[in-house]
Nucleic acid binder design. Structure first.
Lengths: 148, 148
DNA sequence: CCGAAGTTGCAAGCGATTTGCATTTAGTCT
DNA sequence: AGACTAAATGCAAATCGCTTGCAACTTCGG
């Protein structure tokens, strides 16, 4: 649980209080890898432990503290993922078939540098690379149906 | 106006009718480079020439016909840009200071290939690369204020 | 001219996210 | 411990981009 302690420290140094509800939220975020929406996150909490509004507010704090990354899908919903050393920046794949947002392999050093070069002239804090198309699972499903 | 004719042809071949309102919409999209939201687009139309709903519906058709690309900002708003030969795929920069979405230089062939490689295994239709941070203008402004 | 298909505007609906506000809680100072 | 201050919380209501239902209208082939 290295990450949780780190997160707590960073938050406290920002004058943010780490309340019981927030610890729960951090635990859920940490235990489930991958992307999650505010509402899903709220759903994973023990009933009554935190209001949905609290989830939104805490997520905003986490993003500001850079402990969490926000990914915007074309569905207009915000997805969140932990931004710790165990979860470095990586591209995502948005499937137009099933609607899922899938994590892709981490950029290699050289590729990362090449991409970042395009932001020259501005102060870049983060990059988000989102592919769109049909995921391998949906492709397989379509092929099956074609056969059957 | 090569693009407009092209667009018209593509649309017609898709069974989409090119009505007066739609021609206006295409003209606005074409004349203003860069990104634009549905509401802004509607604002540029002569008053009463098309309902906002019509704009949304037509944009959806254009995206489906791949004549227009959709870019999702973290503000939850959809931005659109023409997808013609004069406007190839390129990364964008979202400024946290002024909120603008800025177009960056087009990817070079090799970089493009490298990025696309990460989508391997899925059927990729498009990629969207969005940087986030402080744009050069906002940086300059901040420096000035620091001085004064 | 007829009919099927496509388009439009209006009003209403939807759903993610935000805000206002009064209450509660956590951290600090004495 | 008691007092004080800033932060956090829950609830209800508001916001707002976007979508839908529907009836009227246009377009185009035959």
């Amino acid at each position: 649980m290295e990450t949780l302690c780190d997160a707590t420290r960073v938050l406290k140094s920002n004058g943010v209080r780490v309340t019981p509800a927030r610890v729960l939220l951090l635990e859920v975020l940490h235990s489930r890898g991958g992307l999650i929406t505010a509402q899903e996150l709220h759903g994973f909490l023990p009933a009554g432990s935190a209001d949905l509004v609290t989830v939104y507010r805490f997520l905003a704090l986490l993003v500001k503290a850079r402990l969490v990354r926000e990914v915007a899908g074309t569905d207009g919903i915000a997805y969140y993922e932990m931004a710790c050393s165990h979860n470095p920046v990586h591209p995502h794949f948005e499937c137009l078939g099933c609607g899922r947002l899938i994590c892709l392999p981490v950029f290699q050093q050289e590729d990362s540098e090449r991409v970042y070069a395009y932001g020259e002239g501005h102060e870049v804090e983060s990059v988000s690379v989102v592919f769109r198309g049909t995921c391998s699972e949906c492709l397989a499903k379509a092929t099956e149906e074609g056969k059957g």
